[in-house]
Simulated assay, not measured.
Amino acid sequence: MNFDLPRNVILPVDAIDVRLDSGPHPFARENAEAIAENWQREIAVKPALFDGTVVLLSQLAYRDNRLVGRCHAVNYSTFMLWRKRRENSGAEHAYAHAMLVAGDNALVAIRMGSHTVNAGRVYFAAGSFEPDDFRDGQVDVDFNMIREVREETGLDLSAARRGVRWHALSTTRGTVIFRRYHVDEPADEIARRISAFVASETDPEIDGPVIIRHAGDLPDGLALHMKPLIEWHFSGVD
């Protein structure tokens, strides 16, 4: 099986060996015409979309607390069509979340801007893996996490205390790899800093911060994968 890992359960992850294959993803190669046609429809609705480079998985497995997989660089337009045809596509998506934990144990998430594909959705600052997130062909998940948080919120988590390991939650819609990043300031101060950054940006990617103070504090627009992550955090497990 190309994708062999438990679904809908939070998994402890001690090592991540996801490699970037230099060849094209079969989904991109086999759907070139449909990708181009769908992209024209997408940008007609959201002209701000950019056809950059992200990666799609062709393999992912979970063995002995390790994630092992292979992925390929694709245009964002390929990813957009895949979102509509993911079932039996031979492709899956993985992404990373830096779970931002404030000094008062609240979580600080973000709400995506109205011009983005996920407009209004609430989740931790994140983005798809890009070729720059790979070192010697292997994905550097923490580099991706820190980069995305900095780009979207202005916060630098490079010196933040990290959870002892990663965790992952895999569903048929994708696999999120996440890790706690602890910041000493209380949630209100972190949110203030993020709001100030957003106000200073000409074209911010997010609308602003969202504070989550307990397991039942679920904001409107919460992404489907977030509820189990929030419950996991406030359960106190490590």
Rank of each mutant, 00 (worst) to 15 (best):
S22V: 07
P228D: 11
Y95M: 05
R66K: 13
V55I: 15
F143V: 13
R111H: 00
G23V: 01
E148V: 01
N31R: 11
F50L: 12
D51M: 04
N8S: 13
W82K: 00
F124L: 11
N75F: 05
Y62H: 09
H115S: 09
F134L: 13
L218T: 13
E42G: 02
V18W: 01
A191Q: 03
G120D: 03
D51G: 06
A159V: 14
H93R: 10
L49Q: 09
R111G: 02
G23H: 07
G137V: 15
L81M: 06
D4C: 10
S77M: 09
V54R: 00
V198C: 06
L67F: 04
S170D: 10
G23W: 01
E37F: 02
R179G: 14
G120C: 08
E189P: 02
L57E: 02
N88T: 08
N144I: 07
S89G: 11
N8R: 14
L5C: 06
V139F: 03
G113Q: 08
A48E: 15
R111L: 04
A196Q: 12
G127I: 03
G174T: 08
W82Y: 03
A109S: 14
D184G: 11
R41M: 07
E87R: 13
S77D: 04
L5I: 08
R83E: 14
T153E: 05
V54W: 01
M99A: 11
M226S: 10
V210T: 10
Y95C: 06
T202F: 02
D184W: 00
T78I: 06
D207R: 14
A126M: 11
L100P: 02
C71L: 09
R165P: 07
Q40S: 09
Y62N: 08
E148A: 03
T53F: 01
T171V: 09
M99P: 00
E42I: 12
E151L: 12
F124V: 14
A223I: 08
F234V: 07
V9N: 01
V183M: 15
I10S: 04
Y76V: 11
Y181N: 06
P131C: 10
V54E: 04
P228E: 08
L67R: 03
Y123D: 13
N38T: 08
A98R: 01
I43N: 03
W166T: 06
A215F: 05
T78P: 00
A196I: 07
P24S: 11
D142Q: 15
D140I: 10
I211Y: 02
N118M: 10
N75R: 15
D136M: 11
L100T: 13
Q59T: 12
A196V: 09
F143I: 13
A125G: 12
G208Q: 05
